[in-house]
């Protein structure tokens, strides 16, 4: 949702408030025609489902050529050359042959590489990767992330990585925003957050990770309850129903933003309790 809102691709009946700033311009104030020139050009996106994100009736080459011809005005033949170069860049073997393949002839990992080539085609300033490896198996996940990381550094792009995999986040990001129920609960430098888990939800996320040496037969720690109905979110803290620290004040009042060390921000009513719970764990 957040990623789609950034791209201005939410359904028509959705309303977006606030601002999305890129190069000093607020994207929310742009017209649809202006947004069409931003999407795929200055800001590109990689989706979660590589299996269904490519059009089954067009060749992958044609799909990669599309943004090139649209935004860069390349001719058909030079767009084709560029598509082959891009396929090579994302590590697809025999790019000159693969370019005329249909998506069903490629594996999931290859399709995600094609999606990356597509997103990369116009050298965007910002690359949004919305759980890019969730649908892939573990060995491919690693390759894809490494590829994204390399490309981001070589092309000088900014990467917005959306993931629930803490290992992926720790390895690939500089800053983290932890979100729960559509609101930011904790944000800051990746190192700070991983050193000083503070918000009860962030602590829960870490507690739920399997740990090396935790022993067989021991159950994983879970956060009690389920994700709240997004239509009827509590008016105060969205995590109230599942939080071990919650008290009467939480449900009805929006929690304050507490500044920790540096730019580390935590949105919680019970900051002191949360900080002191770090050592013994909130969910044991």
């Amino acid at each position: 949702m957040t990623a789609l809102a950034l791209m201005g691709l939410l359904p028509e009946n959705a309303s977006t408030t606030g601002s999305v700033n890129l190069d000093g311009e607020n994207l929310l104030q742009k017209s649809e025609a202006e947004m069409c020139r931003v999407r795929g050009n200055k800001m590109a996106m990689i989706f979660q489902e590589p299996m269904t994100s490519l059009n089954p009736v067009h060749t992958v080459g044609r799909q990669i050529m599309e943004p090139l011809r649209l935004h860069k005005g390349l001719s058909k033949s030079s767009a084709m050359q560029e598509a082959i170069r891009l396929l090579d860049r994302v590590g697809i073997p025999n790019p000159a042959e693969r370019v005329s393949n249909y998506p069903h002839q490629l594996s999931g990992g290859q399709r995600q590489r094609v999606m990356i080539a597509l997103a990369l085609s116009c050298s965007p300033d910002v690359l949004i990767a919305d759980e890019p490896t969730t649908a892939l198996d573990v060995t491919i996940q690693d390759q894809i992330l490494e590829l994204i990381q390399t490309l981001v550094q070589e092309e000088g792009m900014s990467l917005v990585l959306i993931s629930h995999d803490l290992g992926v986040i720790a390895e690939n990001t500089d800053n983290v925003i932890v979100m729960y129920g559509g609101t930011v609960v904790e944000s800051g430098k990746t190192d700070h957050i991983f050193d000083q888990l503070t918000h009860p939800y962030t602590q829960g996320l870490f507690a739920a990770m399997p740990k090396v040496g935790m022993g067989r037969g021991k159950r994983l720690t879970t956060i009690p309850g389920t994700v709240p109905d997004l239509i009827n979110l509590p008016s105060g803290c969205t995590f109230t129903d599942r939080c071990p620290l919650a008290s009467d004040i939480c449900a009805g009042n929006i929690p304050p933003v507490n500044q920790m060390e540096g730019s580390h921000l935590v949105t919680c009513h019970h900051l002191q309790q949360a900080v002191s719970a770090r050592s013994k764990g909130l969910y044991e």
């Binding site: 789609l4 791209m7 691709l9 649809e32 025609a33 069409c36 020139r37 931003v38 999407r39 795929g40 050009n41 590109a44 996106m45 989706f47 489902e49 269904t52 994100s53 490519l54 059009n55 089954p56 799909q63 599309e66 943004p67 649209l70 935004h71 999606m115 597509l118």
Partner: peptide
């Protein structure tokens, strides 16, 4: 409603 339509929109194609 298909995913590839979202991809096409994300490329910058108009509706």
């Amino acid at each position: 409603r298909e995913d590839f339509v979202r991809t096409a929109r994300a490329k910058g194609l108009s509706q």
